[in-house]
Every structure is written in C-alpha cells, then in structure tokens.
Amino acid sequence: MSTTAEIDTAALAPRRRAWWQLLLADRAAALGLLILALIVLGAALAPLIAPHNPYASSRAVMLPPVWEARGTWTHILGTDGQGRDMLSRILYGTRTTLIIGVVAVLVGGIFGSLLGLLSAFYKRIDPYVMRLVDMMLSFPAILLGLALVAVFGPGVVPVIVALAIATIPDCARIARSIAVSVMEQEFIEAGRAVGLSDRALFTRYLMRNCVSSIMIFISLRFGQVILIGAALSFLGLGARPPAAELGMMAAQGRDFLLFAPHIAVIPSVAIFVIVLCANIVGDALRDVLDPRLRG
C-alpha cells in the first residue's frame, strides 16, 4: 500500500475560484448583471411582452404612472404626449438604444482589436498603425457623429457608424499594449520554433490570450457609447420618429416637464440604469480578470 496514492492532491491545492464566481461574489456586480440581463431580456422580448402597440396613440394623453393619483393599471408607466403607452415604448426604445450600443461597440471593437493585434504581431506596420490611431484619437466621437449626420442626414445608421469608428482607436491602443506583452512570452517563441504558420500563431496563440482583456475594455466602453448615442438622438440627430429610442423619448418629454415629468424622466432613468449596470459590471470584470487595466 503506497502512501502517495492516499494523498488527494486536489484537496491540498488552494482552491482557485473561477472568474465568474469571483464576479458573482461582488454583490454590486452580481446585482448589476442581473438587472442588465433582465433589461436585455425585456428588450429582446419587446414584441411579445409589450402590453400595447408602442406607436399607436390614444386619447389618454399624459397619463401618469400607476403609483400616482390618476394612474391606471392599463398604462403602468402612463402615456406620453400623444397618448402612447410608455411601458411599451420603453421596451422598444431600450431595444433600439441597446442595438445602437452593441453593434457600434462590437464592430468598432473587432476592427480596433484586429488593428492593435496585427500591429503588435507584425512590428513592421506598428509605427504606421499607431500614427493612424493617434490621428483618429484626435477626432472625438461626438464630432464624428455630427459630421456623419451632417453628410447623411439624421438616422440610426450614421450614429452607429460614428460610434463604431470612434471606438476603433482606443480599442486598438489597448489591444496593442496587451498583445505586445503577450508577444514577449516564451510560448510565442516556442510556437515559432516548432514551425507554426503566422496565421496559426496569430489566432491560436496571440488572439486567444488577449481576448479576455479586450472584452473587458469593450464592456467598459459600452456605457459611454450608449450615452453618446442617446445624446445624439436627444438632439434629434439619431433615431427618427416615430421609432422609439430612449434619448429621443426623453427629448419628446421636454415639452411636458411641467405637467407630466414622467415622459422625460422614465426614459432618462432607463438609460441611467443601463449605463450604471454596464459600468459596475465592467469595473468588477476588470478587477477580477485583469487588474492591469486599472487606472
């Protein structure tokens, strides 16, 4: 009977918790994630769960939410200036707002990180790429948005394009700085030594080791992108009526602030909650997965 067989090595090793366990241990982050999941679910299922047609107006204009004196259960969040059901419009509006943010951040994030990774992988192109990124950085998202809307006219697409382009340079910088440190690791050299092709080295060795850090950056960026998109729609440069979008809905509520503040307040609070949750989850993810990005 050998003694070594009886030792359970797994029990001796300090138990490492998976990153998602650490994340869920952070109560604020867990709550933020839960709320965000509910919001995404609500937005995705909007056509199924919305109690009314979000575009149909009725005579019941400026009805207050149910918790106020004149509120009714038919329109839980009240109605807007044209008698449209606020709850249904919020569900649809969240959908538009989320789509703008997600598409912009993903497209910009993918192009940006590819640029950054390639720049770290092929050192020859590095100076040129970084010069390009520097140039792009000196053109803020809001200005890009204004310029594109000026050329193509107000709409969701120019706003998404502007926000995506504005995400590229920041993302490229972060991706490059992460990739440069990965490129210095020995396993890259080992991969080269065993004769892996550039392509395999790039996708299997470099990209896989950078992806989580880049995802964190993108999640931190998401809130900002939502805010700029909503601001552009608020100004009348993004989503066009009768579509529902949270920023635009807040703008429509401006005229009724005195008599029916809920028309502007509810969409604004919805934006706030989305961005707040995204920021809290992003911060927590960073602390858990990659404290290097802190700062």
Binding site: A230, A231, G247, L257, A264, V265, S268, F272, L276, N279
Partner: peptide, 18 residues
Amino acid sequence: SVAGVSLPIFFICLVLIQ
C-alpha cells in the same frame, strides 16, 4: 463618481432646469 459618469447629461440639465 460612477453615478456621475452613468447619468445622461440631458437628464442632469432637465432636472436642474425643473
């Protein structure tokens, strides 16, 4: 400060005006 970076600027303006 997290709340501050998450608030839409137009909402702050509207609340202050109100």
